[in-house]
Design a protein around this nucleic acid. Structure first.
Length: 147
DNA sequence: ATTCTCACA
DNA sequence: TGTGAGTA
């Protein structure tokens, strides 16, 4: 996972304009625990990963017919480690598993390693696979999700 | 200028 | 979900 994607760069106003989401709405998403922008001096700052997740969340909310409660439930039902086939050694140390039910995007990627790269269980996005929403983990934003 | 929280339509 | 008030 590239650290650039984890850097909290954008204030809420920029994010709002970039994604076409009202600042008030972004704050509500945070309040609901669906995103966790960094805080510096009381101000919110979003990373590229946050933006990517926000785009995905937006689609769930505006196109896929889910509401916030639905998304939260979905994430509870389909935690990333249920989908990914991490081996036992990786699972033992995966922060997303150890801290369940803390949302994985609340976690910092360090313990969970795979093939020498930092596993991004904590920077998880949803996508459709076999018509089921699931997490995407352990890949960079510019990587193409595996089929 | 921008964001924050809170109250309210 | 969006707006306005009053701050910091």
């Amino acid at each position: 996972m590239k650290i650039e994607n984890r850097k909290a760069l954008y204030p809420i106003g920029i994010v709002a304009e970039l994604l076409g989401i009202h600042p008030r709405t972004l704050r509500i998403y945070e309040q609901e625990g669906l995103v966790k922008p960094a805080r510096r001096g009381g101000k919110r700052f979003y990373s590229n990963n946050d933006l990517q997740w926000l785009r995905c969340l937006r689609r769930l909310l505006t196109e896929d017919g889910l509401n916030i409660a639905g998304v939260k439930k979905l994430l509870t039902i389909a935690p990333c480690w249920e989908i990914r086939n991490c081996d036992q050694e990786i699972r033992k140390k995966c922060p997303a598993i150890l801290n369940f039910p803390v949302p994985c995007w609340d976690l910092v990627p360090r313990a969970c390693q795979e093939k020498g790269q930092v596993c991004s269980e904590c920077e998880v996005y949803l996508r459709k696979k076999n018509n089921v929403m699931m997490h995407i983990g352990c890949r960079d934003l510019d990587e193409e999700p595996e089929g």
